[in-house]
């Protein structure tokens, strides 16, 4: 049960691990936006994607993520990719096409599928880099910092962040509990793997009800413990974990801004390096 969470935090001491979580969160958002830019030609798109993929690969190496781990998490998506391809192929399009026994397979259909696949891979890789190099709690702090302005429109940012961090804290506990109840019910003859639909529903019920009851009891005791230790959600609190901007954060952000700026410039000027060289895909 404990090894199911792909992309969970792995405690290395890499450059990315040491970066401020806010830097990482902001960079992730910037990169995620860049992934969706569409440039003036197909060649340009692939060229930029190649650059981004190399950049992401470097980040993966820095944060000690193996390509194998990435592919493992992509495994579940083959079906989706195939589905995307079929949809794209069936969509009417224009432009050049391959003629396969009278069926028009447009180049665009292939490109569009490729775009989506590449974007997906990059999104997953980036999220993975963030989550393996950042403690969940630090991420919560970064998120709270980012959402801070929403406080002024009465969004309970602190409460939301407390809820998230408590949820993160209790995930391992609840997984352990799930495993224990499953084993206990298996000892009473429940089969969680096989059986008819009716048996399966009963099996799930015998797991869910005890799990809920214990979760409710836990949350009540937790609330008591928090209150007894003087927690008041609306009150002022100091904060133990202070995030500290450092030189490497500043430099990283400058780099990301430059990258972002560069992309925007390419986008706005419809610059096409390949067209200039007389190359059309």
């Amino acid at each position: 049960m404990k090894n199911i969470a792909l992309g969970r935090y792995v405690p290395y001491d890499s450059f990315l691990h040491r970066l401020d979580p806010r830097t990482k969160l902001l960079s992730l958002i910037a990169l995620m936006i860049m992934i969706f830019f569409k440039f003036s030609s197909t060649a340009m798109n692939f060229f930029i994607y190649a650059l981004l993929l190399i950049f992401i690969y470097v980040l993966m190496r820095i944060s000690h993520i193996k390509l194998k781990t990435l592919f493992k998490s992509l495994k579940a998506m083959w079906v989706m990719i195939l589905f995307l391809l079929i949809i794209n192929v069936l969509m009417p399009s224009t432009g050049p096409y391959f003629d396969i026994f009278g069926f028009k397979l447009y180049h665009n259909a292939i490109y569009n599928t490729l775009y989506i696949v590449i974007r997906l891979v990059m999104m997953i890789a980036l999220t993975m880099i963030l989550t393996t190099s950042t403690k969940p709690l630090d991420l919560t702090y970064a998120l709270e910092w980012l959402l801070h302005p929403l406080k002024y429109i009465k969004v309970p940012v602190h409460e939301i962040s407390m809820i998230i961090s408590l949820a993160l804290r209790f995930i391992p506990t609840l997984l352990e509990e799930t495993e224990r109840i499953m084993k206990a019910q298996s000892s009473r003859g429940v089969d969680f793997e096989q059986g008819k639909l009716k048996d399966k529903i009963r099996a799930i019920v015998s797991l869910i009800i005890p799990l809920f009851i214990s979760a409710i009891q836990r949350s009540e005791e937790l609330a008591n413990a928090m209150e007894a230790r003087g927690y008041d959600p609306s009150g002022q609190r100091t904060r133990y974990r202070k995030m500290q901007w450092q030189m490497k954060d500043a430099l990283s952000l400058v780099f990301i801004v430059l990258l972002f700026g560069g992309m925007i410039t390419l986008l706005v000027t419809s610059f096409d390096f390949f067209l200039m060289m007389g190359f059309v895909l």
């Binding site: 403690k135 969940p136 709690l137 961090s165 408590l166 993160l168 804290r169 506990t173 836990r218 005791e221 937790l222 413990a225 928090m226 230790r229 003087g230 927690y231 008041d232 009150g235 002022q236 609190r237 100091t238 904060r239 133990y240 974990r241």
Partner: peptide, 21 residues
């Protein structure tokens, strides 16, 4: 388990201190 609030030992001891400002 149900009174361990912080994500680490350090954060758990800090929890009360934070409340106490």
């Amino acid at each position: 388990d149900n009174q361990f609030i912080g994500s680490t030992v350090r954060d758990d001891i800090a929890f009360g201190l934070e409340n106490r400002r």
